[in-house]
Nucleic acid binder design. Sequence first.
RNA 1: GCGCGCUUAGCUCAGUGGAAGAGCACUUCCUUCACACGGAAGGGGCCGCAGGUUCAAGUCCUGCAGCGCGCACCA
Length: 900
Amino acid sequence: MVELPKAYEPQAVEARWYDFWLKHQCFAANPASAKPAYAIVIPPPNVTGMLHMGHVLNNTIQDILARKARMDGREVLWLPGTDHAGIATQAVVEKTLSQQGRMKHRDDLGREKFLEHVWAWKEKHGGIIIQQLKKLGCSCDWARERFTMDPDYTRCVQKAFVELYRKGLIYRGRRMVNWDPKARTALSDEEVEMLEQKGHLWHLQYPLLDEHDRPRAGEFLVVATTRPETMLGDEAVAVHPADPRYQKILGRKCLLPLQNKPIPIIADELVDPKFGTGCVKVTPAHDPADYEMGLRHQLPFTVVIGPDGRMTAAAGEKFAGLDRAKARQAVVQELTGLGLLLKIEDYVHNVGYSQRSQVPIEPYLSEQWFLKYPSVEPSIQAVAEGRIAFHPDRWGKTYSHWMHNLRDWCISRQLWWGHRVPVWYSRAEGQAGKIWCDLTPPPDPENWEQDPDVLDTWFSSWLWPFATMGWPEATETLKKFYPTTDLVTGPDIIFFWVARMIMAGFEFMGEVPFRNVYFTGIIRDKQGRKMSKSLGNSPDPLDLIGKYGADALRFGTMRSAPLGQDVLFDEKDVELGRNFCNKLWNACRFRQMQGGEVQGEIQPGLLTGDDQWILLKLDQAIREITAAFAEYRFNEATQTLYRFFWSEYCDWYIEASKAILSPQNTPARPDADARRANTLAVIDFVLSHTLRLFHPFLPFITEELWQGMGYHEDMPAAQGGQTIMSAPWPQPLDGDFRGHYGLNAAVLERVNARNDLVSQGRNLRREGNIPANKKVRFVFRPAHPVQPHDAEVLKLLLNAEALEIDPRHQPPKGTPSVQSELGCLYLPLEGLIDVAAEKGRLAKELEKAESEIAKTRQKLDNPAFTAKAPPHVLQTHQQRLVEWQTRSERLRQALAALED
RNA sequence: GCGCGCUUAGCUCAGUGGAAGAGCACUUCCUUCACACGGAAGGGGCCGCAGGUUCAAGUCCUGCAGCGCGCACCA
């Protein structure tokens, strides 16, 4: 390995290894493999979308899972692809074309021409997000990339439609649907977002008519509405049938102002007599509840707002052509002029908005295709019984609630970009109403006309887990990798996608589509706001990768993303990731600078306590990280890695190992070279394990170091020899290993005590205002015989000029000292220190010790505690009491020593 | 209205009934031969509030408050 640069430079490294992995087909999934299968299908991003922080979180997790599974020896399929995203994509292309002046509305171009533009757009922008995922390091099997409008995929969508149609689950009907007047299409209920809004309640007076339909001066019915413009389409006023106030006028009529039309007063249970005046205006064509009433009472459905959100001719001359918002003002103005506006109240209410277009939804009566959801029962059961496990599992409740309250899914969209409804209507003489629904168009196309609508995008993506694997054929891929193992997605699409995939899985494959669903949090900015294009608060992940490296972005994101909680993104997290990579880099650089054989054999007889200590810490880290993986607790895994590597390995072990490695610190000993080689062997053992533990999180730098350090050289090609990707996942050190190398609790305690002494000694220096670079003399009075190595490490880590060991040392009055299990450490300052300050410090520590003693004693004096607490808890408390008492006694001595 | 979260250090958050933790920020010292993208030592907490269960509660239970998110046809 050539000499490493002082700081890690990710850019060149990342590109080089990604090419290497691709070239060696490291991401390819082999259905013929004998290894157990592991599969994930990617939540397909919008084909014309750009990578955002949500994608980074989501796909990093998938990549971590995929890479870990490979290291666990499984045959991994991570199947990538993109979604055609009907409304979003069509809207973007429409906007662009109209900005370019090429059309005002898509009708100007016509369907064929317009679709050509969309496809051109897709060709131009469609690959961008895929390239971005590669920059992130995603190990997808790119040869299997799918698009929801691939010809094969389109056939799957059609097949699903035809089958469900033939089962009678798909039907066409005239219904009140959620209409997006901007995109000019129907939407499903899920695509409507209820937003709380400050609005008004307009109280309108409708003149009451007598039995002969004549107005009676001064008699009005007062109705309240949040949408005065809809009054132009009113067909009744409704009251509760039991409302005593209105019994007399039931069956009479009132005069609809502006339209000057008599409308009936009807009785309907739906009306809440306690709300407002107890009178409700009924607009059957523009309100879902009113629609139901319209049906019950056979009212006319007068459409006054058109599909473009403008008033129709039926709204009357004054209003026709006005946008609905303008029409509201105009209606209010007219009614005010007529003296029919009683009052306006401020009113907070919920308004349905189109999630895509961000405009208010218009309830709109139209002919649409609906799906009665299939395989509902088994889908509910699968999650309830845990055959599909949600992480965190509380989402199961949300899922269950939705699944138990299903309403038919409006699947037709009045768009052009998407899968066209595979239905033809006969236009042959005398065949009116005849329908052709099949995978192939009718043989006599001249006699038929295809339905102009396309299907909801989610009607294609709900087939994703098997349509991408060659369904409806029973392909090798399906046999090997279906059902998939894990799905990683956001809880915001639990209804849109997750629930529907489960139903589709049962319906078409007779089996769950996945075993586990991991729900990520939502990425928010520092202020907790959802990241969005319009707010401009979403950083471009590629900028971050350019600045800090992909590994840094991955590590920083994962470290701050706890299971199931939203993530407040802060660039500082990425900076932390970069710093961490740099630390890893330099730790390896340090090893490399030591020279010597790589991966020598570890000799038990030559192990220092520090060597044993770090092996124990490694063992603990392996156990913790593996356990965290099993429960999808990625942030915990990264925290453990951070702690183990930075605090335990770098801060303590490497620093201590310099007592053996660096010639100027190494006392002349016959076995100095052997000891040095042995420590290098331990370092190599630890590093080669550490790199593997890090690999799922930091794929690039770990590969660079794995190969750069030569750790691949002794491994079989398929198990790390070629790439760290296929190196085996580290296993906890087994009993034989621990026995052979003397890894036990006693060693751990001794080294911990020595490290504690180091920390305390450093504190002494600090309290004595000794500059960090000044070497000073310490005296150590050991409680037990001290091992030479420990003394050397003490000297080194205390930056001591000398460490004098004297079991009978009697320090002069006023010498500051600290105590530990191992003995007493003195800092002879010959009166240079501030005695008062030192006394203050000791007094404070003594106070702490006394309070701990009191707390512990209180517990131990409680008979209920000693009777009921489990023995090991009792024992630790007793031990703790002794420790604090010893400490307290030492502190008193030290204080006394400062007294003259 | 119903449901689900959250409330712990200045900030962002971990915390799985048995001594309150991390990162950042802050204070002081240090460019010493892996790393200043670094090292060392510090300061900083009624764990939202009130009850309860328990020998023992940040952790379990019940209220309450504040914030956030779903679901819901009160005009």
